[in-house]
């Protein structure tokens, strides 16, 4: 191998004269705000449902106090000293999916680790192991989080269906569409665009093959996923915002006991 004599650049050293720091700063602020809000919302353990609406941070509600709970209230085996919130039981799946997502990895390596701060800008650290060894080699579990994420999208879609059935005041249910229903439906649409455009899914549905011409269903699936994948960053950010907005809407509805605008049939 050629003996290479190269000069090590200092942190932030660059000849770039453009505002290269804006994009990592926006990513840092955006992701930080989401993480802080999500953590706060997950620890609340209340105001996560209102009527037929269930916050996506708490869906599916495996154990909990609302009418949406699958198996009733807090389980007896939960340690008495530990705080409980239904969100603790499920948030690891979507969080793991986003944490190991190829788009987010590239974005937060830049914004949080400055590795690199931006393209052609000097880095703060000398050592580098990338994703070739522990701990970042664990990013390879992304496809397993994808499997969970696909199930979650289906469950959230079912929650949209349930969000169309409102109490009629006589102990029964009446079909309708409320503002909350629309917000939850848009959220599922954006989450579907993000999840179905996943790089791992693109590989699993057909990318692993060298010849797709003999597999028309795989070819169609591969082309559809590739189409969504080309805008993966946009889907990632829009779905991130929609999840937070859905929770905020339901939380405010519950705290103020709103009856939101709705059309009942």
């Amino acid at each position: 191998m050629t003996e290479l004599t190269l000069i090590k650049r200092k942190f932030g050293e660059t000849s770039r004269s453009d505002t290269w720091w804006i994009q990592p700063l926006v990513v840092f602020c955006g992701l930080s705000a989401f993480i802080v809000y999500t953590t706060w919302a997950a620890f609340q353990g209340e105001h996560y449902h209102h009527g037929p609406y269930l916050s996506p941070f708490y869906a599916p509600e495996i154990f909990g106090n609302s009418e949406h709970s699958w198996f009733g209230a807090k389980p007896a085996w939960w340690p008495s000293w530990a705080p409980f919130s239904p969100a603790f039981l499920i948030l690891w799946a979507p969080a793991g999916f986003r944490l190991t997502c190829y788009y987010y990895r590239g974005a937060y390596y830049k914004a949080f680790w400055a590795d690199p701060p931006s393209c052609a800008v000097g880095e703060p650290r000398k050592g580098y192991r990338g994703e070739s060894s522990f701990p970042l080699i664990l990013q390879n579990v992304h496809r397993f989080f994808l499997y969970f994420a696909l199930v979650f999208v289906l469950l959230l879609a079912f929650d949209v269906w349930k969000a169309m059935w409102f109490d009629d005041g006589n102990g029964g249910k009446t079909f309708g569409i409320g503002l909350g229903t629309l917000i939850l439906a848009i959220n599922v649409f954006l989450l579907s665009g993000y999840t179905l455009g996943c790089h791992s899914l693109r590989h699993l549905v057909g990318g692993f093959l060298d010849r797709l011409s003999g597999a028309p269903i795989r070819r169609t699936a591969y082309n559809c996923v590739s189409c969504l994948n080309s805008q993966h960053m946009r889907w990632a950010w829009m779905s991130l915002c929609s999840v937070a907005c859905s929770d905020i809407y339901i939380r405010l509805s519950s705290m103020m006991d709103w009856t939101d605008p709705r059309i009942l049939f």
Partner: peptide
């Protein structure tokens, strides 16, 4: 060393 790539897309 494909594991060294951390997908910065530069």
């Amino acid at each position: 060393g494909i594991g060294y790539c951390n997908i910065t897309k530069c």
